[in-house]
């Protein structure tokens, strides 16, 4: 269970929201010249990082507005919430303090290589 701060209503339980997958996916501007492979990429392939993820949410059981968030998928910590149309926030100075190479959290991990 996580809390999400809707930019319009404030902090609410995650169960009030619906996730809309990766944010900033742009529809190809040259559909006629696209290969099957490129179309496949656009339709089916989305980033799936363990770490910083830019994603869309809609406040379904509230104001029903869409907005974007940046979340660390290895801890569910929400780092930024911003409105649709706002510039994609730069998080290059975010320091991932997780110990493992693939971003395993120290707590709740079965990864003994990390725990040492």
């Amino acid at each position: 269970m996580i809390l999400i701060k809707c930019p319009y209503c404030g902090e609410r339980d995650q169960s009030e929201f619906t996730n809309g997958g990766e944010a900033h996916v742009i529809r190809p501007t040259n559909p006629k010249s696209l290969s099957d492979k490129d179309w496949g990429e656009y339709v089916f392939f989305r980033n799936n990082p363990k770490g910083i993820f830019y994603e869309r949410w809609v406040h379904s059981h509230g104001c029903k507005k869409w907005f974007n968030a940046v979340r660390n998928t290895s801890t569910d910590q929400i780092l930024k919430v911003y409105k649709v149309g706002d510039k994609r926030p730069d998080l290059s100075d975010f320091e991932n303090t997780l110990k493992s190479p693939s971003g395993e959290p120290f707590v709740g991990s079965g990864n003994f290589a990390v725990k040492k």
Binding site: M1, Q14, N19, T73, S74, T75, P105, G108
Partner: peptide, 13 residues
């Protein structure tokens, strides 16, 4: 859960 996550817990709802 209705969103991507690697937290290996899952939501209570």
């Amino acid at each position: 859960d209705g969103y991507n996550s690697f937290t290996q817990r899952g939501g209570y709802d």
